[in-house]
């Protein structure tokens, strides 16, 4: 887990509360959590190189402290199929965001469709760091199918939490969807709860959402960390 504190300290020294996605994913990698292959690039050439290394389709996301709600600003473009599309998206980003402070563009291997889950953490005024697991995606706040545990959580607690969501049937291979590996999922819950607990002096809130569960495994596709 070495290096996480350093990353968080740097962000704090920049007076930032929002951890950018590429930083958040770097932290997840350091927790030995598998995230889709990605690279932060500064130039069009680097973007093309990274995309061809990962293989198409790819996703491109603008990394900027001024653009936190990326989707709202059109700063995420998915399903890019070719070098041409990567080039034009890169140009488009540079045009549209010419006045903001851009840290770079995150090129990421696109994860295939699957069930969208959320794992998040928050600092509860009564209980301190708590972890949430549930049905993820953009409608998470409308569906509200989530379960809480104290951080750090154990694997049996996480497995039990997984069984407590109303939509648990979705994890069993619902209507042709792949079955979710619950052991792997509980490991992910445990690791994220440990991250929130170990770095509770720094981390206020965290959303790993969506985590896409498909036939290849579990993939945290977006990660948001808010510091104290």
């Amino acid at each position: 887990m070495s290096g996480i504190k350093e990353i968080l300290t740097v962000i704090q020294s920049e007076q930032r509360k929002a951890v950018l996605e590429h930083e958040a994913k770097m932290i997840l990698r350091k927790m030995e959590i598998i995230v889709p292959p990605s690279a932060l690039v500064k130039t069009k050439e680097e973007a093309i190189e990274a995309a061809s290394k990962f293989g198409y389709p790819v996703v491109m996301k603008l990394m900027s402290v001024e653009v936190i709600h990326k989707t709202d600003y059109g700063a995420v473009v998915i399903n890019l199929q070719s070098e041409e599309e990567v080039k034009s998206t890169f140009d488009d980003f540079m045009n549209r965001f010419s006045s903001v402070d851009v840290a770079g563009v995150l090129i990421e291997k696109m994860v295939g469709k699957g069930l969208e889950l959320i794992i998040g953490t928050n600092t509860d005024p009564t209980f301190g760091p708590v972890i949430l697991f549930g049905v993820g995606g953009v409608m998470v706040e409308a569906i509200k199918d989530v379960v809480f545990r104290l951080c750090p959580t154990t694997q049996p607690q996480a497995l039990q939490a997984i069984e407590e969501i109303k939509a648990r049937v979705l994890l069993e291979g619902f209507r042709g969807m792949p079955k979710v590996n619950k052991k792997e999922l509980s490991n992910l819950i445990v690791k994220i709860s440990e991250l929130a607990w170990e770095y509770k002096e720094y981390i206020a809130e965290m959303d790993i959402n969506p985590i896409i569960a498909n036939e290849d495994g579990l993939f945290p596709v977006d990660a948001r960390i808010i510091l104290k």
Partner: peptide
């Protein structure tokens, strides 16, 4: 209310109930 979905979903009694 915080900046994340998790904070928005962190209703005191729901957490108490689960814990």
């Amino acid at each position: 209310a915080g900046a994340s979905h998790t904070a928005a979903l962190s209703v005191n009694d729901i957490i108490v109930d689960d814990l």
